[in-house]
Design a protein around this nucleic acid. Structure first.
Lengths: 268, 268
DNA sequence: AAGTGGTCTAGACCACAAC
DNA sequence: TTGTGGTCTAGACCACTTG
């Protein structure tokens, strides 16, 4: 890029791939700025495993040289990836691939907090795997995971307790193929967040998620596991988690007891 | 800034105020980059009403001249303000002060959606003011609004219906002083979002909010207003909304019926 | 054609961390 | 001292909107 001016027709941003600033098909000029093309290339490095969770990526100057653009342009690409929580910048040290492990908050996607608002006040959660079995996807699960109906899925049921009090009952479903080999023992033996295990053991990194929340009453079995009554209303939290490329990789349904905890959300 | 180098001790970013790059009190050097100081100055222009909701702010070059910095520096300040939804950029037209009115989504802070996920499918909500009265703040409300207990507050109760079905029952409390003159008639006569009325009539712009969500069972009165039974679990959504400077300006408690709707949340 | 935001560059220098 | 991210600048040019 040092030789060719920006916005020129020669917008080959890298040696191995031409992202193409304009995919002119007549409709929708689809102009894409250079830093967006760089971002796509970096996303590929993340997805392919070239850059692994918690590892440092090349320095900005190195990347600028590799992609033949200025440092400012790769900075803008990194800025966006950092804003999406895919990368973490550390001044003086480098830029690192984000991870669900070694994250100072244990559960990044868990929005349930004790009434006093301080998750540290109750210590780490106790986890108990109730069940983990292989079965065929129901219509609902298949839709959520973009599978064919009756494809193999893994189903896990577990209970989370805080200060010894059962508070969350979770059922979750994972696509069978990427998670082949996952067992109840494997889950029980791991002491970090589940999403951290997915990263290290199966190379699946959850990037974002969506939740649908409702108020419900539990059935008899759910009551027993949560030590509560059928008259106690619970939060039903249905989550779909995605890897790169918006690929759904987990469907989860949680029942939250909210007598001593609440679901916190920030609106901007 | 054109004459003095960056990071110099003469970091007076504007003619009328010296934001001071370092408030050196011995501890915590508190280094603040230039664009952050610019951001603070722009925040003051927003807060003081110099720049009003939906109006255009000066162009980047004008601001650069006013603050005696480069265009890139004011861009970075604007970038952050836009990321916080305080400003909206429109290429070719200018940068505008964000507003709760004329926003293509009617209720920016309302996260309840119909099961099909499309809020347009059910048309606009019907609003009915049940009550609007002046009273003294309870301990809980006083705490949430940072008032003294027994200070005057306004209490409003209303019901929102979708397709004719009562779905949300809301109680909300506003500090008496800033909202002096607000009446049920005033609320009922306005057809835009409540937060838009707050902007135009009282000069109060809600900037962000926090919600605490629980599952609850309604009492008899709540049941009547929502046309439901005491055995139907509801979402209790407790919201505190803030203006500039993190000043709480509204406390609200909503009861959401979630048999045909759900609360949607995006996790990043 | 003029004005506004958006992109890109090259270079200088600061803050922070590690050796 | 070196290397990394972070800030700031000045200038060129592109994309979009409006007259």
């Amino acid at each position: 890029m040092a030789a060719t001016p920006p916005y020129s027709s020669d917008s080959s941003a890298s040696a191995d791939a031409d992202a193409g600033a304009t995919t002119g098909s007549g409709l929708t000029p689809a102009f894409s700025p250079l830093y967006q093309q760089i971002k796509v290339l970096m996303l590929q490095s993340l997805q392919s495993g070239e850059w692994k969770p918690s590892a440092a990526i090349p320095s900005e100057l190195e990347l600028a040289a590799r992609f033949k653009v200025s440092q400012g342009t790769v900075r803008k690409a990194i800025d966006e990836l950092a804003a999406e929580n895919l990368l973490v910048r550390r001044q003086g040290k480098g830029t690192f691939v984000a991870t669900h492990a070694e994250h100072h908050v244990q559960y990044r996607f868990l929005k349930l907090f004790p009434d006093n608002g301080d998750p540290n006040s109750e210590g780490p959660a106790q986890r108990k795997i109730i069940d983990c079995k292989r079965l065929r996807a129901s219509a609902e699960v298949a839709r959520a995971l973009a599978l064919r109906p009756a494809d193999a899925v893994l189903q896990v049921r577990r209970v989370l307790s805080f200060a010894g009090v059962p508070t969350i009952l979770e059922d979750l479903w994972l696509p069978g193929t990427p998670f082949k080999g996952l067992t109840a023992e494997r889950l029980a033996g791991y002491d970090g967040p589940m999403y951290a295990l997915f990263e290290t053991e199966f190379g699946v990194r959850m990037v974002r998620a969506e939740e649908k929340i409702r108020a419900v009453l539990p059935d008899a079995e759910q009551c027993k596991l949560l030590h509560t009554t059928q008259q106690t209303p619970l939060l039903s939290v249905e989550r779909t988690a995605f890897t790169y490329n918006d690929t759904p990789m987990e469907m989860r349904r949680g029942l939250y007891l909210t007598d001593t905890h609440y679901y916190r959300n920030a609106l901007n």
